[in-house]
Design a protein around this nucleic acid. Structure first.
Lengths: 217, 217
DNA sequence: ACGATATGAATGAATG
DNA sequence: CATTCATTCATATCGT
């Protein structure tokens, strides 16, 4: 974790989003799981340590993932989970080892988005509070794709928790050639904002039979 | 591409991988990987089977590791991982091998510390209420007999099947002789924080021209 | 010496 | 935010 020891042997691509061609592995269309590239990791840690980003907001996550997409395919939820895991594990280590040796609790957590750091995926569905984290750590940058920070994406249901019991799948957000809307029955996928394609594509419907769009948990 | 850096061969000195059989080595602090001693394993299994410890809490982990340290170098994370792996593999084995021992999966796991599944930092801080796990959890240290109380009596919170999507295809890495080029570095800083001070905030690189910097690669 | 297996370690994903 | 599951990589150990 802290120590940079990313095992990079298959990351960067090859998973499933690779442009099918030399398919050594004719894996099924399902993505195993996100394998961060070293660059992505580096940036994430950058944010974590230098920017004090711990629990990025939805908007931040989108920006981050958009930026990180340069280095490999990535979804918003990956960023979300990454921060959660990283933080949790930092903490756990301290608790477990908890001895003296560890310290350095001082994090440059200056610019924390004071207000909305506690947004919950569940609540996300029904709340329209878009705070202007614009000045927060992450926001101050990425001028290009300004996500709809206050637009209609307020209730785009972007939390992972909104999933019912679907299997894990991965939304393939291809930049340019997308296959969304194919024959997939359900795409509850994470919000996928694509700066290049058009705008945003997020499938809030996990199941047709549900009939509960703005799910209110 | 993938900056895969070679791992280090720490093994040269035979510090850890003692050739001796019953001999165990509590190698020097530079041991890349914890090699449990027979005593440690015995006790761990003791806890696993007799005490029904599956996912020890942070407190338990600390106690266990402290206790086990008598028999060799060990850290909290070792204990943590051990239980996690052991539990996971027991389950895995069962699924694959097919349940042999069949029922009688009930283990006396009632001795789990009441709040085992909910340890919080707050509680961890300083509570006057010491649970009995102080003796139940860790005290079962060296009974010195077989720990296999009855075989696989371990499975408690995971009874109901939950496996469905069990696919995996092209991932069989070459195990064995082929050196796929490891990239893990020896880091043993569970108790150590590592300073990631890469001065490179991508969020700040927005200044060049207000064109688009989203695609600069 | 290999090759295979067992197992420590790490981490993405998910749930409560 | 805490805890757990699953998967995978890496290496120690053992078998041949």
């Amino acid at each position: 974790m802290e120590p940079q020891q990313q095992q990079n042997q298959h990351q960067g691509n090859g998973a499933c989003g690779s442009s099918g061609k030399g398919n050594n592995c004719h894996c099924r269309p399902t993505c195993p799981r996100w394998t961060p590239t070293t660059d992505q990791i580096r940036i994430l840690k950058e944010l974590y340590y230098n920017n004090g980003v711990r629990s990025p907001t939805a908007e931040q996550i989108q920006k981050i993932s958009a930026r990180l997409r340069q280095y490999g395919k990535i979804e918003g939820k990956n960023v979300f989970y990454w921060f959660q895991n990283y933080k949790a594990r930092e903490r756990l280590k301290k608790k477990i080892e908890g001895s003296s040796t560890s310290a350095a609790d001082n994090l440059p957590m200056h610019q924390r988005p004071a207000a909305a750091t506690n947004w919950k995926p569940e609540d996300f569905a029904n709340k329209s509070r878009s705070q202007s984290i614009t000045s927060a750590g992450v926001s101050a940058t990425l001028p290009s794709y300004s996500v709809y920070t206050g637009g209609q994406m307020g209730d785009h249901g972007y939390g992972p928790v909104t999933m019912e019991k679907n299997f894990r799948d991965c939304s393939i957000s291809s930049t340019g050639s997308s296959v969304v809307g194919g024959s997939r029955s359900q795409n509850y996928g994470w919000v996928g904002i694509d700066p290049h394609t058009s705008s945003y594509i997020f499938f809030g419907q996990k199941n047709s039979a549900d009939g509960n769009q703005g799910n209110d948990k």
